[in-house]
């Protein structure tokens, strides 16, 4: 089960710059907060985001606690060939969530 939302065009012209928008549900706990008992709440953020286009990395990001909860990112890529965009988010607990989107290039 993935809690990610991906927004990409289904179809694009070859050479067209397309916008990719990706959001995932995650608390992005900063590690700077304390709970009601005064105990520090351990940091748990997604610290790495990666987007592959047919297995080649086209975009990546390192995130720090100043990223908002449910991290959202919009970036772009050149539509080259019909293929699959793969998204991966890695958090501090080592959990990797993945999502994919297909694109048809005409």
């Amino acid at each position: 089960m993935t809690r990610a939302l991906i927004n990409t065009p289904k179809q694009a012209q070859q050479g067209e710059v397309i916008e990719i928008r990706a959001m995932i549900a995650h608390v992005m706990e900063t590690g700077h907060r304390r709970d009601a008992q005064g105990a520090a709440v351990p940091r748990n953020i997604i610290h790495r985001f990666q987007c592959l286009y047919d297995d080649v990395e086209i975009f990546a990001a390192d995130f720090y606690p100043a990223m908002a909860a449910n991290p959202f990112i919009a970036f772009s890529t050149v539509a080259t060939t019909s293929g699959v965009l793969t998204f991966a988010w890695t958090d501090d607990q080592g959990t990797i969530q993945r999502a994919t989107a297909e694109i048809t290039v005409v």
Partner: peptide, 16 residues
């Protein structure tokens, strides 16, 4: 954050 991009981005614009 640090964003890693390259020529395949087509355009250098990022929103978050």
């Amino acid at each position: 954050a640090v964003f890693h991009l390259g020529p395949r981005a087509g355009r250098a614009r990022i929103s978050t």
